[in-house]
Design a protein around this nucleic acid. Sequence first.
DNA 1: TGGTAATATATAGGTATCCTATATATAGGG
DNA 2: CCCTATATATAGGATACCTATATATTACCA
Lengths: 121, 121
Amino acid sequence: MRRFFRAGVRHFMDAELIKGTLALLVLSLLRRRPMYGYELAATVRQETDGAFEWKAGSLYPCLHKLEQDGLVLAEWQGKPEGRQRKYYHLTRNGEAVLAERIKAWLSISQAVNRVLENPHE
Amino acid sequence: MRRFFRAGVRHFMDAELIKGTLALLVLSLLRRRPMYGYELAATVRQETDGAFEWKAGSLYPCLHKLEQDGLVLAEWQGKPEGRQRKYYHLTRNGEAVLAERIKAWLSISQAVNRVLENPHE
DNA sequence: TGGTAATATATAGGTATCCTATATATAGGG
DNA sequence: CCCTATATATAGGATACCTATATATTACCA
């Protein structure tokens, strides 16, 4: 049985193409509501039908960096007994940066599609 | 006056998002017709309205790797006198790999858009 | 004639992101 | 009791892209 993290060897190409989308999508998910790391990975996995399977070794360092940069705020939460979860909230600055990054993504992805759709021969 | 290469400091975010798209677009451009490096950069720059400004330090190593991997064939061409140009041709294998990479790109970019478009609040 | 810019290719070195591997800990099922 | 799932964390490695630098030709212009 496949564990949730470590789920699979992604193709070389995919690994490169998804670069930069991790922080973008994390911020986008947190705009909906505060979530904890594992929940973020599970949500994106489900919504992309497995196209994105964020690894723990990518996701948590990314979250720490977003926190360092002041784009998200972390808060331990639980259930006094039992497993603690670290909930991340989008900050005001995080919202602004997200808006910029969405623009950048749209600009780049549309540019790629424009080139790809240019007829050959 | 801006030199064609070295044209500008790209934002951090853009730099990450465009990763993986370089080889994809090079192969896509070569599907139209054989081109040389400088021509590839000029073409993509024009067609994307400056969204992509490939640097020499990125483009030429990328072309060398595509050649090593057998996806393109290089051929010096000129004008016996004067500046030589290295024309790159897409190989049979290169066509097949390009088709796969276009599928991967569509899958990933659509997955990103699906997440981004999910309403918040 | 001399300087600058554009054309054209190349490589070395640095940075950042993502991956694998590993570690820790709780909870539930067989 | 072990295995899986849940949940977070970090160290080490691979790799793509960037900056900086190097070389050479051609064209323009003062």
